[in-house]
């Protein structure tokens, strides 16, 4: 069992985490969640585990990676807790602290997405999907192939990446963010 206090303090200090201590464990978030049954732990339980200081169990779970950002939990919560924002915080913490996540490939997708933007300033769909399926399950790519081809023939899926103007400026922005992140 990890340190009992520090984990909840850490989450409470992030944007959207302010009201996590007001949670009364009523479960309306999990009841309203369209992905609750896919999750390792439903949102309510994640909050209970954060409060119990179960850092490793929470950050290595797949729960937050299943969040669809529909905000239903946040809208329904009677206490102003923002489980959607907390899920995003947990994703960030898990990635930053190098947790290996079981049962979901979402982190891979996110990583490829961000890399594509870092490079080109915009998303290159073909590149992302290729890398994603190569890293996860190349056979699964067959399932989306018809859609991909259809998009291609409608000229909606360029084969080669096309960068935005001023990529040097973008690089500066990213650099600045990394400095700020390192400081905090």
């Amino acid at each position: 069992m990890a340190d009992m206090t520090s984990f909840i303090d850490e989450v409470a200090a992030t944007p959207g985490g302010e009201h996590i201590r007001s949670c009364i464990q009523c479960g309306i978030c999990s009841g309203a969640c369209p992905a609750a049954n896919e999750m390792e732990y439903p949102p309510r339980k994640i909050i209970a585990m954060i409060r119990a200081g179960m850092r490793d169990e929470v950050l290595s779970s797949s729960s937050m990676w299943h969040c669809l950002s529909c905000y239903m939990c946040t809208v329904r919560c009677p206490r102003g807790v923002k489980p959607t924002d907390i899920a995003h915080t947990l994703e960030y913490l898990a990635y930053q602290q190098g947790f290996k996540v079981k049962g979901t490939t979402t982190p891979v997708m996110y990583q490829n997405f961000v890399n594509s933007i870092k490079g080109n300033g915009r998303v290159h769909e073909v590149g992302i999907m290729l890398r994603y399926y190569l890293t996860t399950n190349p056979l699964a790519a067959l399932k989306v192939l018809p859609v991909g081809l259809s998009l291609f023939f409608h000229k909606r899926l360029p084969l080669l990446p096309k960068g935005v103007k001023g990529r040097e400026d973008l690089a500066k922005i990213i650099q600045k963010f990394k400095e700020i992140e390192a400081r905090s």
Binding site: G27, I28, P42, M72
Partner: peptide, 28 residues
């Protein structure tokens, strides 16, 4: 049942729910 229901709906997802009020909730 401990849990604040998230929704009451009349949209059935299976034959057992037809014509009923369905409560969606987490059994916490």
């Amino acid at each position: 049942i401990r849990g604040r229901p998230a929704e009451i709906t009349d949209v059935a997802e299976n034959p057992e729910e037809e014509g009923k009020l369905i409560i969606q909730f987490e059994d916490t």
